[in-house]
Design a binder for these strands. Sequence first.
DNA 1: AGATAACCGAGACGGTACGTCCCGTCTTTTT
DNA 2: AAAAAGACGGGACGTACCGTCTCGGTTATCT
Lengths: 206, 206, 206, 206
Amino acid sequence: MADTKAPDSTRRSERSRRAIYDAALSLVGETGYAKTTIEGIAARAGVGKQTIYRWWPSKAAVLLEAFIDLGNQAAEAAGAGAEGYEIPDTGDLAADLKLVLRATVDELVDPKYEAPTRALTAAGIVDPELCAEFVEKLLEPQLQLYVQRLRTAQEAGDVRAGIDPHIALELLVGPLAHRWLLRTRPLTHEYADAVVDYALGGLAPR
Amino acid sequence: MADTKAPDSTRRSERSRRAIYDAALSLVGETGYAKTTIEGIAARAGVGKQTIYRWWPSKAAVLLEAFIDLGNQAAEAAGAGAEGYEIPDTGDLAADLKLVLRATVDELVDPKYEAPTRALTAAGIVDPELCAEFVEKLLEPQLQLYVQRLRTAQEAGDVRAGIDPHIALELLVGPLAHRWLLRTRPLTHEYADAVVDYALGGLAPR
Amino acid sequence: MADTKAPDSTRRSERSRRAIYDAALSLVGETGYAKTTIEGIAARAGVGKQTIYRWWPSKAAVLLEAFIDLGNQAAEAAGAGAEGYEIPDTGDLAADLKLVLRATVDELVDPKYEAPTRALTAAGIVDPELCAEFVEKLLEPQLQLYVQRLRTAQEAGDVRAGIDPHIALELLVGPLAHRWLLRTRPLTHEYADAVVDYALGGLAPR
Amino acid sequence: MADTKAPDSTRRSERSRRAIYDAALSLVGETGYAKTTIEGIAARAGVGKQTIYRWWPSKAAVLLEAFIDLGNQAAEAAGAGAEGYEIPDTGDLAADLKLVLRATVDELVDPKYEAPTRALTAAGIVDPELCAEFVEKLLEPQLQLYVQRLRTAQEAGDVRAGIDPHIALELLVGPLAHRWLLRTRPLTHEYADAVVDYALGGLAPR
DNA sequence: AGATAACCGAGACGGTACGTCCCGTCTTTTT
DNA sequence: AAAAAGACGGGACGTACCGTCTCGGTTATCT
């Protein structure tokens, strides 16, 4: 009973939903987020505007769902269908982290993902509600993988016992995000490697 | 020769400029960046729309300048008028960094600065041109302070010789930015302290 | 064979029909014809939209039928149940006509009838098809009463032999309609009397 | 201080106004009043919607003004520039009135005028405010001509002294309007003649 | 001192998109 | 098979701003 009139989701048109996802993603890719309009999405999807307004509260919400859907599809295609995914554990923590961070760099730089990711992040920075959903649905699951790998590393003695994995992970991910978001310097594999080395080894001399 | 008609900046109305800064900042504070319009700024500032379009290319540019001006005013008021500012050097690197990062946390959490900073950051994430100006005018000068302090620390033997200060600084600033932007967890003094300790000492056991 | 799918009228829900009539009339009375929508009628009647579209071609048609029904109900209630109604014949033609025209004035001025009558008339002026039905079902029967009374008057020598009753009647009814529709001047009993006197006696001196 | 924001009419674009008149009239002629939309008028006139909403309160008001303008233009073109126009006075009242009523019939039947006139009349029937303007600007000036001619006739002894010209005129105009609006029977010159004869001579035998 | 620019306030203009309301059709479930 | 319910593609509504443009009215130099 949140809204005065909640639409009946059992009658929802799957066809339209998919068309809207596709239209939203392609338009953001082609013309950028700011120039993407709900009217434009509706037109390209061959859908009435109301069908969008009925199911989503904002342009950002549409894009977020479209993006989540994109991720799920990719996961289904790539993975063996298993939802879960893991950071590899070869015993060499530094190597494992570098592998993952390099992959993250690749994804952030991939033009297919860059525009919508930036758009969503920017929207989330300004809109706490959207941000919460973004973090919960997309970011947190990713970060949990780090938490698990770091815990394993603690048990193996590769990470100090007192370290809080949630903070540790931000030492790895934060710098990458910072560079990518603010474009201060180029985002490369070398940078990813350096971040891992610095974070594990510390800045102070031993 | 860039524009067909470059306005004569010597004739510019200082009065209007200030009024526009004030209007822009107060509107963003009250209603948020997205709902702030150029027409609204002009109306509140008691200024014709053209006066804004004559001197700024976009809403974001207005806000950026207004924000820079805000910073300058604060600096003039607080500082002894000296433009330059420095990270203290007590000899205790960790303590010095914690002091600065705690101050950063305070600023990011201060409601007076939060809304416009978020607005500008979000705009910059999506608009490379604006981002460049934002980084150059506001961010880079701040980051240079870290570079200098870290260089001093290297000379003093408190930081390993091979460390690149530009990467090192991101190990300190990146995590804070990450938390603040994405609101993953609370941004506190304790967190700032932990980041400094982890970054200096490293995650791996010694 | 008119429509591709003619609904089976024997199965029609009497309950719904009445509810639609009531809803239509009350909505037109409350908010005016233009702001009355089929969706609104359906909602107030507690009826599916399709139930209206199944049985009526347009909003105007619904209202026309509702109005006819209203008239029938009134007739049944007032009259002895006889559908037929007559202009009285006391032998004094002028008096008889004044009686009827005064009653017409009263009806046109009655707020209960005014709004829907205006709405229907306006719709008919612009839509010939609806107009034809309006005239056939509502107006013509009324006008026939004048034709009959005027014929009787001709036989009695109260109206010249050569006069066409259909034109004569318009000399009586036309002026009233003109005033009512265009609100040029107040519509009163005195006016009705004057119209009868002028029409019977002529404008020219004798 | 009727409206909160009255636009500055001295800055109004004459060009746009004319284009809107033309577009409105042509669209009503082509597709009918109901299917004519403000958006359509704006598009055909090459004008922003707001330019229409700024100066007119409704579609009907636009059309009314366009129609008045049309009349003025026709008057300027036909007449010697004199705004005033008169019912001829040949001494034969019946002949003079027949001439005018026949011309009225011709105009009402002319497809160029029929659609917009019907549309405006229908709108006025339902909207008292618009009706008042319609009557004041278009109808009343016409009716005044009858008043004047009838007064002259009274002085000449062709009309009884006690007759109220305002009612007399409705005996002439009302029947025509009734037939035209409700399409009860064909509207012809013969009908116009009959109305004049009946009205002047009266229905009762002499 | 008068001419002549330019900026300035104001806001009308041609547009685009907004978010809402209804249209008339279609589909699902219930009676 | 009709009816209640309501999602759907579509289209117009009336509003809010966009960025451009013209209009007097101040300034503020440059003859």
